[in-house]
């Protein structure tokens, strides 16, 4: 069982960028690339960018597959911002939400051979703050950005 991972530092970040995309998996990479573009001034390492990309894409895929059941008519709303060295991303689907507090731990021996259940775990490991709304159809991810050389 997980709790929402929270840092107070990210709570007041305002979001200035927003986009709405259809629930089509082919749109995932394009959307993540657009968010990553906003991080260019920070000269992040390729590894850091890879971690952030993984979180964005896992969250988008979950929203499309499990939230909107791949119904392309249902939108995914993405809001994001980088401010004061903090990246904040909010992804919302139009689905019924899910029980984010009781996801199986994929790292337990009995779950390592499972074919599902790693996405949210990875997001929680790679982001500094992760929380869901009560319904479970909106994820907020916050990452403190370390400026590169």
């Amino acid at each position: 069982m997980y709790n929402n991972k929270k840092l107070n530092k990210g709570a007041d970040v305002r979001l200035s960028e927003a986009m709405k995309i259809p629930s089509e998996l082919k749109k995932v990479k394009e959307a993540s690339a657009r968010i990553l573009q906003s991080l260019l001034p920070y000269n992040l390492t390729a590894y850091d960018l890879l971690d952030i990309r993984l979180c964005i894409e896992e969250a988008l895929i979950n929203a499309m597959k499990y939230g909107n059941k791949l119904n392309s008519g249902l939108p995914i709303e993405i809001a994001y911002n980088v401010d004061n060295d903090i990246l904040k991303i909010i992804i919302t689907d139009a689905g019924e939400g899910f029980d984010y507090e009781n996801l199986p731990d994929p790292t337990l021996e009995e779950n390592r051979q499972e074919l599902k259940g790693r996405g949210v775990y990875l997001i929680r490991r790679l982001m500094d703050e992760v929380c869901f709304n009560d319904k479970g159809n909106q994820i907020t991810m916050i990452k403190k950005i370390k400026k590169g050389d």
């Binding site: 993984l54 894409e57 896992e58 895929i61 074919l115 599902k116 790693r118 996405g119």
Partner: peptide, 9 residues
């Protein structure tokens, strides 16, 4: 250069 959870699965 990149693998996601579907790739891992």
């Amino acid at each position: 250069g990149y693998i996601d959870s579907s790739g891992m699965a």
